[in-house]
Amino acid sequence: MIKIKLHKALHAAQGEMLLDLNLEIEQGTLVAIYGPSGAGKTSTLKILSGLLQPDSGMLSVNDNLWFDTKQKINLKPQQRNVGYLFQDYALFPNMTVLQNLAFALSKKQDRSILQELIEMMELGELQNRKPATLSGGQKQRVALARALVQRPQILLLDEPLSALDRKIRSKLQNYILSIHRKYNLTTILISHDIGEIHKLADKVIILENGQVAQEGTPTDIFINQKISGKFKFTGEVLNIEQEEVVYIVTVLIQNQIVKVIAQSTEIEGLKIGDQVMVASKAFNPIIYKID
């Protein structure tokens, strides 16, 4: 269980902002933090890892105090044993993939974990290459493996997949899920992708202006809002085109492309890339068994 009660004045682009966090995170859950940029998402991860010092409050992990202004406790990042995946991957350019992983070993640690992670992340062929020669998805896998070398209890992922294309993203989501389960981690993930949050997270925290605006399961927060329809999916708008008097909206739902007819009033304010929900109440879908 992670108990967070922290305050920190941040100097954001829009001016002063008070980051005010009051959260409890169960051991073994995967929590997504969602919110507009500048809401304090990355700062939250930096505070948890000890890279940024809060002004006041307390932070405890499994009943160990990591930070407490009253008792003047503040563990250094070196003492917290947190796995952190940076937005820019932060791979060391002077080291090969294997050296990057080996650098994360603690002094007396058994090297066998390196081989285990290399196999799991399928890095075997890349291990003697320098980061500069890797693709985005490959760098991401190396960074993820490196964050796990020290066997952390907590894994922090700062928008790990935003720079990758859809296919690689989906593959990496599976990696994240499998390591989360295998090592029984408590994972905190920053994501802008509602589909991704649905797939990965047990719980979503919506941050707005440094405050927790909403908390709950992804379904509660993103779907059970107003419509009580029985047939509904979330997806992303890929295209909007006009055909005679109506509009045809192409929506990507999971890996399926769906075309939906919409009126001009419905597409108002809708643009390509928006997250939408496709729902219907007035008809019964028919279920076939596929041979």
Binding site: G50, L51, K76, P77, Y84, A90, A104, Q150
Partner: peptide
Amino acid sequence: IPLSLKEAAYVMGKS
């Protein structure tokens, strides 16, 4: 040098 390189090493427990 990106700050994240230094931070990554600290988080790994390096002095």
